[in-house]
Structures are given as structure tokens and as C-alpha cells.
Design a protein around this nucleic acid. Structure first.
Lengths: 232, 232
DNA sequence: TTTTGACGACTTGTATCCTAGTATTCAAAG
DNA sequence: CTTTGAATACTAGGATACAAGTCGTCAAAA
């Protein structure tokens, strides 16, 4: 028997989507730790649904690399793969550098308002010490930049590739320097606001390269969560 | 009743994966034209399976934007969305420019051999006038570049974003100038081979910006296949 | 003690059944 | 002729039943 954190069901949301959201939440929040076994039956029981929505959610999660399904044997939460973490970061770096430049050119005053509003909320979240709230706003900030360029699907693609990194981020939650992140966000906003596009790449690069700093430490602290990386 | 082109079932492949591959094939090859209705029951009957694998394939295809599911009403093949086509091209441009530079630095002699072999096969496919074979090899060429950088997942992400573009390419099959594409591939190989990384961006850009040239014509020729784009 | 094989308790894969929502048809009422 | 509403024939959503493969247990045989 397993227990899961249940999310609220939004209006008009299908059971399948709710199931997916809920399992995803439990995966990135490490309620279901990497390496643990998850059977469709158990999860269905824990969620109070039948196997069908769970199974369909499992398929999506396996696509995104968070679950590994061994037919007729079982399903397991994937171990954090450092190579995947890096690949996600690289993908995001490439796309966000270009898109930040693009945003400098085509952003509207409305886009600036949205970003400024978001930054104010980030400040609040930090002052009120609500890390998960801050994480959502952080995501939203970057999503807004892509949205300003009409590239929201690309942001979604980045999100899907970031699931392994998200779990790392969850592990190093306490070590996060929120003030530094907020400062970088302010810099990004300034770049976009002043259309200072020759600083865009540098700003994004700085924001996204501070990642790997304590990955080794985490690996030593939670060795069972990481995949044994046998070269390339 | 509908009829589909059936693909061969590979060894050890689950019915679900085969179902997915088959439906995808029929979608990008326009056997199931944009806008047409596809019911889970009909497709299951045409494929000789039960609804379950079809349903699970539909979910993936809906995720990738090739199907649109209206709950309790029906499922339809999505209309080609020019904005999506452009977004896919943009994503690929960003990622491939960087990755081509990276490939210049870290490619091994083995990578070169693989690319050269591929180009020889491309030449054969063109001489034997096998367009679908050539398309596969074209895909493979670019996949090999990403693979040389250890970024095969990024290529997969690009593929998923390219489904709308793939259908456009299928429409303009006859208008394709294969020789030009092959020449560009040879240039890309030369860039990688000689580690001429300052020409990498230019080479990729040239290869990927010749896309929209006859999109307007196709739109006029097959108006029912395209989504009415209400500005942005 | 070691080996072997039957059995049972799992797992996911696939098929089927039931439910509920929607569109259409068509007849009856205005 | 127009409008309304019930019946019907779809649709996908979800639950359940069954099939088939895998693993561990445990007893029997060597």
C-alpha cells in the first residue's frame, strides 16, 4: 500500500488529466522517490480511480522519462540521470538565448507589465518564505518570455525535458539562493525592457549555468537516487 | 468504415507501439487527411485490435498536436497550423545551429564515417528516385549530428514538434529539389569534418530557412487542410 | 545440501463492458 | 412552415475482466 499527496481537482478537468498532474507532482516532489516501484493497481487504489486513467498517465510519464516500464514485470520511478539533466539545461540554454534576443525586439508594453507583475509576486513569495510558490513564479517568468514571442509550445517542450532537473532542484531546495535568482530575473527584465539584445545571451547564460554546482554533493548525499553513469 | 495502410510489426514490439507507429504513418502521409474524423472504434476495426491500444495511441498523438479530441463528441485530425510549422522550424534552427558548432568540436572519426555512409545512401536513394527513403535518410543525417553530441533526446523533442511541418513537406513532395538538399548536407559534413565551426550557423541557417517558400501556394491548393489563422 | 519444478502471487498488456454526454433525426405541436 | 422535444445512434471516458509473462516460494527429489 502506498500513500500519495492528492491535488485538488480543477473544474472540468478529466480524471485522466488530474491523475497525470497528481502523479507528476508526487514524482517531482519525491513523494515517489527515484528507484521505487509503482504498480498501476497501487496507484489507482491510492488515487481512488480505476487502472485506466493511471495507466494512461503512466504512458505519458514514461514518454517523458520519469517512469520506466518493464512489461509484465513492473514500473519503477526512473533514477535521476545526470546526462538528461545536462541535456535539458543545454536545450533550454540554446532556446532561451535566442528567444530572449527575440523578446527584446518584439516585446510589447503589455509583456513588460506581465513580467513586472510577476517579479513583484516573486518578491512577495521570497519575503513570505514560500519556496514552492516561488518556483511556480520562476517558471511563469520564463514562460511569459516565450509567450511574448509566440513560442509557448517551445516552453512546453522545455518543461518536458526538464523533469529530471526538476527533481534535482527539489533535492537542493534549501541551498537555493533566491535573492540571486531574483536579481537575475530583474536583469533579464531590464534587458528586455531596454531592448538591450546584445546582453541577452550573456544574461540567459549566466542564469542557466549556475546549475551543476552541487550536483556532486547531492549525488554523494542521495546515491540511491542517481543513475550509475557508465561513461558515454 | 475507413482503410489504413498497415505497417509491418517489428519483433518484440507491443501492439500499442505498433498501433501508434501505424496511425502516425497514416497521419503524416495524409492517408488520414487533416480535418477528417477518426473514431477510436473505426481505427481499432481497421487495425484489427481493440480500442485500448488505439485509445492510448490517440492520447500520444493528441499530445503531439496531430489529433484533436473533443470529449464525448469525437476525434479529428488536426488542421495544419502554420504557426506551429514556424515554431517547429524556429526550435530546430536554434538547437541545430548550436549543436552543429558543438559537433565541429567534439565529433569523432567514427561520427564522420557514419555521416559519410549516410550521404552515400542519400545519393543512391535520389538516383533510384525513392523519395520516402530519402526523407528517412535526411532525418537520419541530422539525428546523427545530434547523436555525435550526445543529444539524441533533443532530436526526439524536435521530431515531436515537427509533425505539422512533416505534413507540409508531404504536400510539397514533388516540388522538392533533392540535389540542393544533398549539396547542403555535403556542406554540413564538410563543416563538421574540417571543424569549420564559424560556418556552422550559416550552413544550418541556410538549410532550414528555405522552408516557407511555397507555403502560400500549398494553402491555396489545399485550403481545407489548413487552419484559418486568426492573427496573433 | 543442492537442485528442480510446480504453484501462486504478483506485474503489465489487451479486450470488453458500462456510463454519460452530444448530435441528429423525425415526429408532433404550435 | 417553424419550433420543440423525445428517441436514437453515435462519441469518448472510465471500470472491470481476462490473458500472459515474471518472480519468489516451497516442497520434493537427487
Amino acid at each position: 500500500m502506498i500513500t500519495l499527496e492528492l491535488l485538488g481537482k480543477e473544474w472540468g478537468e478529466s480524471v485522466r488529466d488530474w491523475t497525470f498532474r497528481t502523479i507528476l507532482y508526487n514524482l517531482v516532489n519525491l513523494v515517489l522517490p527515484p528507484g521505487s516501484a509503482v504498480s498501476e493497481n497501487d496507484v489507482a487504489a491510492a488515487l481512488g480511480t480505476s487502472r485506466t486513467p493511471v495507466r494512461e498517465a503512466f504512458i505519458r510519464l514514461a514518454q517523458d522519462g520519469l517512469l520506466v516500464v518493464y512489461p509484465q514485470k513492473g514500473t519503477y520511478v526512473s533514477l535521476v540521470d545526470e546526462h538528461r539533466v545536462e541535456e535539458g539545461r543545454y536545450m533550454r540554454l540554446c532556446l532561451e538565448m535566442h528567444t530572449m534576443e527575440l523578446a527584446c525586439e518584439i516585446r510589447t508594453p503589455e509583456d513588460l507589465v506581465a513580467l513586472e507583475t510577476n517579479l513583484r509576486l516573486q518578491r512577495l513569495a521570497v519575503d513570505e518564505k514560500k519556496p514552492s510558490r516561488f518556483f511556480c513564479l520562476d517558471e511563469d517568468f520564463h514562460r511569459l518570455v516565450f509567450a511574448a514571442c509566440g513560442k509557448e509550445r517551445i516552453w512546453e517542450a522545455i518543461r518536458k525535458m526538464s523533469s529530471h532537473f526538476d527533481r534535482v532542484r527539489m533535492l537542493s531546495l534549501h541551498a537555493t539562493d533566491w535573492e540571486k535568482i531574483i536579481a537575475q530575473h530583474h536583469f533579464l527584465l531590464e534587458v528586455i525592457s531596454t531592448r538591450n539584445h546584445w546582453k541577452a545571451r550573456e544574461a540567459v547564460s549566466e542564469h542557466l549555468t549556475k546549475v551543476n554546482y552541487d550536483l556532486g554533493k547531492l549525488r554523494r548525499e542521495y546515491p540511491s537516487y542517481f543513475r550509475t553513469t557508465q561513461g558515454r
